[in-house]
């Protein structure tokens, strides 16, 4: 909808998408019968791209992520990963949740990260632990390898969850408001560290958030959604807006544009 100074990475665009959502329509059963959460949402995610689903609460962004993960079946439309239809959850799409209890409390941090490598990839315990250690060092948890999750702070738990997702080397990383329950300072540090990791490893990411500045910072492309039912209202290319551009006029302009779109006509879309 809106053209931006940022140039989309053309070579990425041409490649076949890793993840495709086509005409995604999601219903859920509520107290008053079936309720439409998302209507006819489509997007592609290319390799190395970071797509952000952004919208107010009730726009179904988390439901879309659950459908991508295979936890919920769409009422109509489809999700496909590398051309194959997604029919259920699988370790090729690892999810990082918002909730701190996503780490399994009965396993040490190291074994939490090693767990998907063991059960989904069939690695030996030794190999899985070695990879877990490498991933945890990368996210700055070298000193918490043997700790149990309940002894960690919220930020450390989310770091461990990100390490667990990265170590599993999924085709697509799915993140459902992973920093929403953190304090502002920790959130900022984790956003920066996530971007640094993305630069190093070049993973493909679908990131759900309701914070506009976080969306512009983290994403290479934004997919704006309106609520009741969730539907696409715009897409933004933000590949050129990262850590270095934060606070620059170009960055703030995009934040304002997105804000205006979301709250146009006194919050018509909200």
């Amino acid at each position: 909808m809106t053209a931006l100074p940022a140039v989309p990475p053309a070579e990425v665009r041409r490649a076949a998408p890793v993840l495709e959502a086509r005409g995604l329509t999601l219903d859920y059963a509520g107290a008053a019968g079936r309720h439409r959460a998302v209507e006819d949402v489509s997007f592609d995610v290319a390799a190395g791209e970071r797509l952000v689903l952004l919208g107010p609460s009730g726009c179904g962004k988390s439901s879309i992520l659950k459908a991508l993960a295979g936890f919920v079946r769409p009422a109509s439309g489809s999700v496909s990963l590398r051309g194959a239809a997604v029919t259920g959850p699988g370790p090729d799409r690892i999810v990082v949740f918002q909730e701190f209890d996503q780490l399994l409390p009965w396993k040490s941090v190291r074994d939490n990260v090693a767990f998907p490598l063991r059960v989904a990839r069939g690695l030996s315990l030794k190999e899985a632990r070695a990879r877990a250690d490498t991933a945890l060092v990368k996210v700055g948890l070298a000193r918490a390898l043997d700790a149990y999750p309940h002894t960690l702070s919220g930020g450390m738990k989310q770091r461990a969850a990100i390490a667990r997702a990265l170590a599993a080397e999924p085709d697509v990383l799915l993140m459902d408001e992973p920093f929403a329950a953190l304090d502002a300072l920790t959130r900022r540090t984790l956003q920066e560290d996530l971007l640094k990791l993305a630069e190093e490893q070049g993973f493909t990411l679908v990131f759900v958030t309701h914070a506009i500045d976080e969306a512009v910072l983290v994403g290479t492309r934004l997919h704006l959604l309106a609520a009741h039912p969730g539907r696409t209202i715009a897409t933004f290319e933000t590949a050129g807006l990262g850590l270095a551009e934060r606070g620059t006029p170009a960055f703030e302009q995009v934040v304002r544009d997105v804000h205006e779109l979301l709250f146009a006509d006194g919050g018509r879309h909200v």
Binding site: F71, P89, R93, I94, V95, F97, Q102, L104
Partner: peptide
Amino acid sequence: PETQRLVGRNYGLRGLSYIAL
């Protein structure tokens, strides 16, 4: 907790291995 169930399903655990692990 729902999150831990989803984590298990995310790794492709089903049936007995889901119950046991």
